[in-house]
């Protein structure tokens, strides 16, 4: 199985899923027609992808999907989103920036602190003072 074949299969499965969910999520037949037709086409093309792929191509810029670092970043973005919704932008940014840098492997805490302060200050200056739109 090549990567593209897996993708094609996944896409086709997604089409099947949406095709069967749609009727429960719309309030008229016309409203559901487009997603259903598109999901049918998606099934057809997903299968076609799986059928027409020739051989696996090697690439060196590839990463594992269950890479701890990748998951860490997703969790970090998710956590920031929750924080922004609960406490507002500035506290969330002040936590996000240094943790992002530390995760990246940056260990020079002086520059990290300086960078966080400068970036947050710049955002405040641009968004709040210059544009007057205000972040929560």
């Amino acid at each position: 199985m090549t990567r593209l074949q897996i993708s094609g299969g996944a896409i086709a499965l997604l089409g099947v899923l949406i095709f069967f969910i749609t009727p429960y999520q719309v309030n008229s037949i016309q409203s559901g027609a487009f997603p259903r037709i598109v999901s049918l086409c998606l099934i057809v093309f997903g299968v076609l992808v799986a059928l027409t792929t020739e051989k696996s191509e090697k690439t060196n810029d590839d990463i594992k999907l269950f890479n701890p670092l990748l998951l860490c970043y997703l969790v970090l973005v998710f956590g920031t989103t929750l924080m922004i919704r609960k406490y507002g932008f500035y506290p969330a940014i002040i936590i996000l920036l240094p943790s992002c840098l530390v995760l990246f492997g940056e260990r020079n805490y002086k520059t990290i602190t300086l960078f966080t302060i400068i970036t947050t200050g710049m955002i405040y200056l641009i968004i709040d003072v210059l544009l007057g739109s205000g972040l929560p």
Partner: peptide
């Protein structure tokens, strides 16, 4: 296939004609 996937994602949220919620 990717294009159709995009079309499908764009149909999430609202029916563009009536504005009624959909998916």
């Amino acid at each position: 296939a990717s294009m159709l996937f995009g079309l499908l994602l764009s149909s999430v949220g609202a029916d563009p004609l009536s504005g009624a919620p959909r998916l």
